[in-house]
């Protein structure tokens, strides 16, 4: 492989980081899921980085990294920040989404200054009706606008390859749009 880039999925507990890496990866995913010691609504949770990979022809491989979204894990953010090709912030659809974590991620990775395509992916949205989902996305779009960050907010089904592929497709399109600008 002559080129290796990273696509990071950052999100708090239960947003679907491990699932999306598993869905997209061509190799067996190396994960750090461990049994939860407190009740967080699921049996296992990610305590480190999930790692998967997509080979892109003979010349490029894309590393897929699922990284915890809390700022106390910023040493892991440091690790994925080198050679970062794209950054997806995963947020679970709910009445109380974690927008503070989004701001921390934006402040750390500085997507505009570092020219990293960014996307907010709304997960677990299958129970939301269209109006609620649109409003949810509008709120996050406004948060991005308040940080002068032009990026998409898209709803993703982490278990569906086609749906999950929207993220690398979008990020690739952003790269190509810049090349053509």
């Amino acid at each position: 492989m002559s080129e290796y880039r990273k696509l990071a999925f950052v999100g708090t507990v239960g947003t679907g980081k491990s699932t999306i890496v598993r869905t997209l990866s061509e190799i067996e995913v190396i994960d750090t899921d461990r049994a939860s010691t407190v009740d967080i609504g699921k049996e296992f949770t990610t305590i480190g980085i999930d790692y998967g990979r997509i080979a892109l022809g003979d010349n490029m491989a894309l590393g897929l990294y699922g990284v915890p979204g809390q700022s106390r894990f910023s040493m892991l953010w440091d690790h994925v920040n080198r050679s970062l090709w794209g950054l997806a912030f995963l947020v679970k659809y709910s009445e109380s989404p974690d927008s503070d974590s989004l701001l921390e991620v934006i402040d750390f990775f500085q997507p505009v200054a570092n020219d990293i395509p960014f996307v907010v992916a709304v997960t677990h949205a299958d129970q939301a009706d269209d109006d609620s989902l649109e409003s949810f996305c509008t709120v996050f779009q406004e948060i991005l606008t308040s940080r002068s960050l032009p990026a998409a907010v898209m709803a993703i089904d982490c278990t569906s390859r086609d749906s999950a592929m929207s993220i690398p497709l979008y990020i690739n399109a952003m790269h190509r749009a810049r090349e053509n600008a």
Partner: peptide, 28 residues
């Protein structure tokens, strides 16, 4: 701005839609 929240919000978006809207988004 109009393109972003209402269109990308749909789950499983058609790739052509992403194509069109990325063009707009990038000011391309």
């Amino acid at each position: 701005l109009q393109a972003l929240p209402s269109v990308f919000g749909l789950t499983g978006q058609h790739p052509y839609c992403i194509d069109v809207l990325t063009s707009l988004l990038a000011g391309w």
